[in-house]
Design a protein around this nucleic acid. Structure first.
Lengths: 335, 335
DNA sequence: ATGAAAGCGCTAACAT
DNA sequence: ATGTTAGCGCTTTCAT
């Protein structure tokens, strides 16, 4: 016959009793082990193991005012770029013993504001936002609660919140210049919605910075299907562009697939370039020339930044990550 | 001059005082509004708005023993199939006023067990697992804590935990039969690791159920790159298979890209089939024949199941979702 | 170095 | 219908 197992979770008092010390001492070995004698600490730790004691997060939170979790708001999980970002963020946050709770916003600032409020209500100690375009309500929330909040995917040194990200203007400028350097002067640029997505807006600005090429814009969404639709329009033109620049790899892949469907060869008939360097980009055929964004490193940096702010009240500096041109097979010199 | 804003979050007592009632009454309008007179409720609600009062989740949790969140453990966020699942899960959970916190396991049962423990430690009221292959520690945890836990992506009526998912055996059987029906008798099957992934194991069993074809197995990982490696091996063979079945669309796309790279035409030279029906599957060229899994519906069902269990102690039934053959362009009758 | 005790914000008996 | 009050499990003074 097995010994009876206590049904309920044991608490501080149980441990204190078992170790023959006071609850305060147990609390100390949990939070400031160095302030208690190795000998008593030993006893207490044994009791903790014995009783499988796990401190109640709620009780801790209510007393210390600390919940040890931060919230991240991303547009969607459906794009590998955010998945990678969150993976890096969570991993690095773990090193500071902070948990991550993620909320998706579907690129809607209203929803983002609501979800941010929700995260605050359940006690988020920090907020990691995507981009720098947000609802006024969200700014009020941050102002009112004084919660540490950083904006990611976007480097903007003059912005109210610390930003950690890329110079999206430079990113698309790099791409455009590369294409122009290849001799392309008639370029189709395919992008997602610019009204709610500041990444897209900045990238469009970068495109506009390069003036020695004729640019035609195709505005669709950010999905594969949107890329395909854009491709159909592009090839309908009387005189086709010699290169297509997509402001996201997902779009670029959609374009690529549709071009293949129409028997148009990349890069022989037309050059194609993406942006982001998602896992798919290097694997499709032809491998996609794109601009690599170090999203994992950015995720880690975001974790370090928000952790430092939350833990030690160190307001982070803005942080810039450089894009890298990835020259692959989908682009060629203009014939 | 603006009126002073109280810096600190107001609490029940503040609201009670402002409304001229007791804390219990305030608590009541929060938790059982119908038990308090419309008139006093009105007053209390006004005070709540006025003071911007938001109940402390921690304090609620400590008293009611309820945290109103469940944990989900998925192998990775890097695969659209889990992203879609989580999106549906979160959305539906929201309807029951439950939050979702997700943890990724990287397909490692040890890590899964650890993260599950972590979720329990912070007060998860329920657990949503992926697959039915788990570490003994995790089963002990579930047993010991009696936490509601369901297994998803997998239908297994004899399993200890309620399962909500597909018959993975049938899924691959369906695919195999379709290929055989097309006249293919020499088929390459490409799959990921089977030792830690029961989805893969079951799918392999389904393949084995179809005996009227010669099958060669290629065991790699689940990434695009793994698919490409497999493709290289497949085409090295003296006599090539006439069809390739990949036990995941991601692998299938990797295979497709590599075949294209070698100038091998799909489906003219070789038929190719995937599984899952990810967004990419219908967009690549040629569009991938695959077996559709209703992952969003499964996510919703999982939400309903775990919510019912957590809220009303209704232990859910096992639930089966049918796969659907999606006949597209990547497969052809054997020439 | 350790303990006693107050109290965090709330819910849930119980009383009125 | 509303109020009083005892905790929930922990952290944190304040003593010792």
């Amino acid at each position: 016959m097995k010994p009876e197992r206590p049904r309920k979770r044991s608490n501080l008092r149980d441990v204190a009793k078992a170790a023959g010390v006071s609850v305060a001492t147990v609390s100390r070995v949990l939070n400031a082990p160095q302030t208690v004698t190795p000998k008593t600490r030993e006893k207490v730790e044994a009791a903790i193991r014995e009783l499988r004691f796990v401190p109640s997060a709620a009780a801790r939170a209510i007393n210390s005012g600390r919940t040890r979790f931060v919230g991240a708001l991303v547009p969607t999980l459906d794009n590998a770029i955010f998945a990678k970002f969150l993976a890096a963020l969570e991993q690095k946050l773990g090193q500071s013993n902070l948990s991550l709770v993620v909320a998706t916003t579907g690129n809607d600032p209203k929803i983002e504001a609501e979800k941010a409020q929700g995260l605050m209500n359940i006690g988020a100690e920090g907020l990691v936002l995507s981009g720098i375009h947000h609802d006024p309500t969200l700014y009020e929330l941050i102002e009112r609660t004084q919660v540490p909040a950083i904006a990611t995917s976007y480097y903007a040194p003059q912005y109210d919140l610390p930003t950690i990200g890329y110079d999206n203007v430079l990113t698309s400028e790099t791409a455009m210049k590369y294409l122009v350097g290849l001799g392309h002067t008639d370029i189709a640029v395919v992008h997602g919605q610019s009204d709610t997505n500041d990444r897209t807006r900045a990238r469009l600005a970068g495109v506009a910075n390069v003036t020695n090429a004729k640019v035609r814009y195709y505005n669709n969404g950010l999905s594969l299907m949107d890329g395909r639709v854009a491709a159909r329009e592009i090839i309908k033109a009387d005189v086709r562009p010699t290169a297509i620049l997509c402001l996201s790899d997902v779009i670029a892949m959609g374009v690529l697939f549709e071009l293949q469907r129409h028997g148009i060869s990349v890069p022989d008939d037309i050059s194609l370039m993406g942006m982001d360097d998602l896992p798919g980009a290097s694997n499709v055929y032809p491998a996609l020339t794109t601009v690599h964004l170090p999203v994992s490193r950015m995720g880690e940096a975001a974790a370090v930044a928000i952790a430092g702010w939350v833990e030690d009240r160190e307001v982070p500096e803005h942080r810039l990550f450089e894009p890298t041109l990835m020259e692959r097979e989908s682009t060629a010199r203009r014939s």
